[in-house]
Design a protein around this nucleic acid. Sequence first.
DNA 1: GGAGTTTTGGTTGACATGACCATTACCGTG
DNA 2: CACGGTAATGGTCATGTCAACCAAAACTCC
Lengths: 242, 242
Amino acid sequence: MVMETTTYDPSEFPAFAVTVDIVVLTMAKARLHVLLVQRGVDPFEGMWAIPGGFKRPDETLDEAAQRELNEETGLDGGVDVRQFRAYGNPGRDPRMNIVTVAYVAVLRDIGTPAASTDAAAAALIPVEDALSGRVPLAFDHATILGDAVDRVRTDLELTGTATAFLPPTFTLAELRSVYEAVWNVHLDAANFRKRVLAEDGWVHPTGRRARPGAAGGKPAELFRAGRRWKHGSPLRRRKATP
Amino acid sequence: MVMETTTYDPSEFPAFAVTVDIVVLTMAKARLHVLLVQRGVDPFEGMWAIPGGFKRPDETLDEAAQRELNEETGLDGGVDVRQFRAYGNPGRDPRMNIVTVAYVAVLRDIGTPAASTDAAAAALIPVEDALSGRVPLAFDHATILGDAVDRVRTDLELTGTATAFLPPTFTLAELRSVYEAVWNVHLDAANFRKRVLAEDGWVHPTGRRARPGAAGGKPAELFRAGRRWKHGSPLRRRKATP
DNA sequence: GGAGTTTTGGTTGACATGACCATTACCGTG
DNA sequence: CACGGTAATGGTCATGTCAACCAAAACTCC
């Protein structure tokens, strides 16, 4: 039956709670990390979960995601936040019918985990630990996290969102380490430089140089992020070669 | 405030209706078409809309999408259906708070538009007409359709879903026309053949040949669809070269 | 039979890519 | 301060990829 051609009574429809979950990914110690909160109440008490909250009727989904991100991290604007999937399996929340719309946010390293409101129950966990089950997640959040990482992996190839992981100014080695960590590959430093610089508009030189690390080495040039292409990446994902 | 660490009363949360909309795309006359239904009731009466319906509490979102697809087209299994985005802007439905989860289904040409239940109000419309506003769509369905087409465009590159547009057995010219229509490009027939056949497992030869069209020409080999890769396509999207 | 059309096979030259070496410019240490 | 170590940067080169193009094959229609 085609719904649109019939009349209906709004009170007849099953009511759902709609939540927005936000997978906050960041780079720490050359590994991908996710911001998780520890549950303090009954279902899955003590387990870790992806932060989120209820959508309000007067805001868009994107606004709800931004609000949640702000409540969790204190960050406000200019953050790379993208919706990637909705989850509505019956029983995914034992209490009621909940459909959740999941977002992924890519942040540069914040340092102190969740320095905002409820710091005692929030932490940055290595993605590998959460996905392998070493850190068990509540609800269907392991699935959600896995999908989020997949999304970032292809976004890195398609939209070149790698700079979102980095501070406003960065070296090419730092940019390369983002690709290496997210894709789990090894990239040749010289070839990486050539390809990134060949695509003009991707990164802009600042003229300044970074201080070398404790191990020494020639000081690297500092770059700013340029525009991001919508499609057709200069960099292509390869097989894993760790 | 971190929601998970507080207790709450389920009756306090805003209730939403959750619907599943399904964008059915198919290839007709070498152009991309979408299945639309004509609305018969008040909001946007007479305008065209993407078919959809309410999610039931006891089914998953994917099941709801399959059910809707079956109700609209009579097709049951083996159809390429993928969720791509949720929409929840306040006021997107003037009657109530509705969050919709949108799916895209890629079908081979069905011939008679929506031969199933409510045929009088369903039609295959060229995507170009719907996106250009020549055929105005109800609600925010123009946005949804645009996102669906974008999704299919990149899926064609990433997952090689092109064979879903075609009958079980097809020629390389037909396969090529899918890429040309969806990407709006021109591809060289000889080069296309080489690349498709180079990637083994993508298509399998059947040994049979197709009858040439009315214009004549050498009879083309018939192929079956092979596996679809998850990532790393043999074919790469290019600039538009019509 | 001949012109037209489409598929299929082959060649070629331009360009992209990856492996690798060399140089530069810093670090710590003695 | 000279020296070995390290990382960034610059260059070369062999290989692979890809698009453009040509030509043969095999059909239809007239």
